[in-house]
Simulated assay, not measured.
Amino acid sequence: MDRAQTVYERYKNEICRIGWRVQYRARKINRVECPLLDNIQAGTNFTQASENKIMIEQITEGLPAFEKSILYKIYLEGYSEAEVAKQLNMSQQAVSKWKKKILSQLSQTTKLLD
């Protein structure tokens, strides 16, 4: 009886691990950033898309080149944080922290402009 219980528990734990891995992969796939310009261009006309591009360039013109490249790669070119990290020889967590920092700076500057 004791051995049957341990075999049951072992298989139960393995099934839980497999389920966790499947859920993790699904979340990872859903987290991939989508290119910003693709979304803008899909629902608007040429004039609106051009104005949006100009607005994005104006907002990001005050950023250093490194920070600007991170945002462009993630939001405009559609790379994931992990892919950008590999290109820049950084960790994915570092790219995530840079992205959050840059976005908060941009948020503060746009609030000041309003």
Score class of each variant (00 low, 15 high):
R25Y: 13
R3K: 05
L88A: 02
C34N: 14
P64V: 09
C34P: 09
L106S: 13
Y75A: 04
L88M: 03
E51T: 06
N30C: 08
Q108R: 04
V95F: 09
S96E: 14
I40W: 07
S50A: 15
T47K: 11
K86A: 10
N45T: 03
K101M: 10
S91H: 09
Y72L: 05
I74C: 00
I70F: 00
Q92P: 05
L71A: 04
R3A: 06
K73S: 12
Q41I: 14
N39K: 15
K101Y: 11
G19H: 12
R27G: 07
L76F: 06
Q41R: 15
A94T: 04
K100T: 14
N52V: 06
S91F: 11
R3G: 02
I15E: 09
N13F: 00
Q41V: 14
R25F: 12
L36D: 12
E14P: 00
K101L: 11
N39V: 15
I15F: 06
K53E: 07
S69R: 04
K53H: 06
A4W: 08
P35R: 08
V22T: 15
K100W: 13
V7S: 14
E14R: 07
G78P: 01
E77N: 12
T6W: 15
D114E: 09
A26Q: 01
A4R: 10
I59K: 00
S96T: 15
L112F: 05
E77G: 05
D38S: 13
K28W: 10
I70Y: 01
Q48S: 09
A26W: 04
S50H: 14
I70T: 01
A4Q: 11
I74T: 02
W20I: 06
S80K: 07
G43W: 08
E9K: 10
I29K: 15
S107F: 08
D2S: 14
T60C: 10
I59F: 00
V84D: 02
L37Q: 01
Q58T: 07
F46S: 05
Y75G: 04
Y24P: 01
Q108H: 07
E81L: 06
E67F: 09
I54E: 11
Y11S: 01
Q92G: 04
I59M: 01
K53P: 01
S91L: 09
Q105N: 13
G78I: 02
A82R: 08
G78D: 03
S104F: 05
E9Q: 12
V84K: 03
Q108W: 05
R27N: 09
K97M: 12
Y8P: 01
W98K: 05
L76W: 00
